[in-house]
Amino acid sequence: MNDMNIVERNVTTDTFKITARKVQVYYGEKHAIKDVDVDILDKTVTAFIGPSGCGKSTFLRCINRMNDTIDVARVEGEIKLDGENIYDKRVDPVQLRAKVGMVFQKPNPFPKSIYDNVAYGPRIHGLARNRADLDEIVEKSLRGAALWNEVKDRLQEPGTGLSGGQQQRLCIARAVATAPEVLLMDEPCSALDPIATSQVEELIDQLRKEFSVVIVTHSMQQAARVSQKTAFFHLGNLVEYGDTDDIFTNPQDPRTESYISGRIG
């Protein structure tokens, strides 16, 4: 496993960005997430791994309250972002989601131009005072998503005309443009080919400088490559959480060991 570690492992900060305590999620009768406690560090890539249906995506969607859009979903417990409980009644999920951006499994560019895709968030949240400001945000975000050089001559063309990998990087640029503090990524590479995947992974490592990144992935290699912290979910429980190196080389729980050595999954 060690030879796959491209990323330096030293975690650069010790401030907790997100702290979750006793989080339960129910889908109707189904108890999808059970008693999850987790502390996510700032300026770190945290990977959630686990077999299909283990609840890792569900938990990710709790962090920006995307589960609110599902009628039957119910969340209990406490998730704090910078010490403030995001499930407090006073918190508006709309404002929360501006702070906690999300990139989805399938690239989902809006049916608008590349420029308008990236400018969507800044326009809504009034981040730009004038056109020049907006141009700058768009360029910065596209550069941040390593897409600028490929699209700078065709910003007015539809975002849906890009290739799959470019579309996903466009979605990342779109999320970055809103200037979030946390970036959630739900299997961002599962619809991409290996080359696009490696581009996005490189990008994730870049993003760590500015954001706290939480990534759900099916690929253990990917988790090992991009993350500093890894959480292993199994059947709705958080089984083990720790430094990525430790999880992959020296797992404490037998279930983790079975999973990373490919016996369950």
Binding site: N64, M66, T69, V94, Q95, L96, R97, A98, K99, G101, M102, F104, K106, N108, P109, F110, P111, Y120, G121, I124, H125, C171, R174, A175, T178
Partner: peptide
Amino acid sequence: PQSLRDGSLGLGS
């Protein structure tokens, strides 16, 4: 597609 709505909501709109 629902993914477009999710994408927009996920950006805080």
